[in-house]
């Protein structure tokens, strides 16, 4: 199900009424208060011929996308997004409601960004065919936002899982598996279990304790405690496939926790993606080498 199915009829028809090639290439639909809706994709952007969005419309839309249940989505609202069935992500621009220095929820929504999630089967094939990643190992995939990280690690999980590796996907934001009513909406392979909605660090530890995985897959590492969980997994002999926001190669050094992850050899392979390279976005594959030693 495409994310615009969650839009009200007039808006949905405006999106689906675009030429088929444009609809197919849409990556995002952005709704901003006082502005008409805009779609973004490989074609650039197109402003829809609709009246400007009102704050009330955005509020009603967001509430509907949260299944009329803010209380059930507070954890993701705190982080500024909602996940729709099918793994589509809705970014929320709003005013934070802060209690005791902590964001508890949001109000006065001024923008929504519906980001389409798609399973592109075969995106990780070059890693196996060209770079020899036939056997599960720890892989860190780094790319800027919209760089294809999630798509790549999802496909790598599928390939290794179908190859017989017991895999656990820790899907904190619901984007890797797109679980609806307990059923993953994406093909993650024959030997994959999904921990849906688990915080990454806790999910990694729970997977190791309870599910006996050979591979654990997580999206968007960032926190120090997540790095510690990856280190624990490595010590337990579990391969970790993870993604990481990285706009520039030097950013790995700028983020001390993550740089430490790489320098300590917690990952065997670092894959950098370049979204400007077309379908095969793999820009480089770097294998970890211990200082002065063999890889």
């Amino acid at each position: 199900m495409e994310p615009w199915q969650y839009l009200p009829p007039a808006l949905r028809e405006a999106v689906t009424g675009l030429p088929a090639a444009v609809v197919e290439a849409i990556e995002e639909v952005r709704l901003r208060v006082g502005r008409p809706p805009v779609v973004y994709g490989a074609f650039g952007h197109r402003t829809l011929a609709l009246p400007p969005m009102t704050a009330a419309e955005l509020q009603a839309l967001a509430l509907g996308m949260a299944e009329h249940s803010w209380y059930a989505r507070e954890d993701s609202l705190r982080q500024g997004f909602l996940t729709l069935p099918g793994g589509h992500r809705v970014g929320i621009a709003a005013t934070a409601v802060v209690e005791a220095g902590r964001v508890v929820t949001v109000r006065d929504i001024s923008g929504l960004n519906l980001r389409r999630s798609r399973a592109l089967r075969g995106t990780a094939e070059p890693l196996v065919a060209r770079w020899g990643l036939h056997v599960p190992c720890s892989v860190l995939v780094a790319a800027p936002p919209r760089g294809g990280k999630t798509t790549l690690i999802r496909d790598l999980a599928r390939i290794w899982s179908d190859g017989g590796a017991v895999t656990v996907v820790v899907d904190e934001r619901g984007e890797l598996a797109g679980t609806v009513d307990g059923c993953p909406q994406f093909d993650l392979g024959a030997h994959t279990d999904v921990l849906d909605g688990w915080p990454k660090a806790e999910g990694i530890l729970a997977a190791i304790r309870a599910l006996g995985p050979e591979v654990v897959v997580v999206d968007e590492l960032g926190e120090e405690q997540e790095a510690r969980a990856v280190a624990l997994a490595k010590r337990a002999g579990v391969a970790v496939v993870a993604s990481l926001h990285l706009g520039h190669p030097q950013e790995l050094e700028w983020s001390p926790g993550l740089a430490r992850l790489w320098r300590r050899g917690l990952f065997d392979v670092l894959v950098r993606l370049d979204p400007t390279r077309g379908p095969d976005r793999i820009a480089s594959v770097e294998r970890f080498r211990r200082p002065g030693g063999a890889p």
């Binding site: 949260a66 299944e67 009329h68 249940s69 209380y71 059930a72």
Partner: peptide, 11 residues
């Protein structure tokens, strides 16, 4: 369902 399991209203 709502208070303890945080299930959405529809479910």
């Amino acid at each position: 369902e709502v208070v303890w399991r945080r299930r959405p209203v529809g479910e």
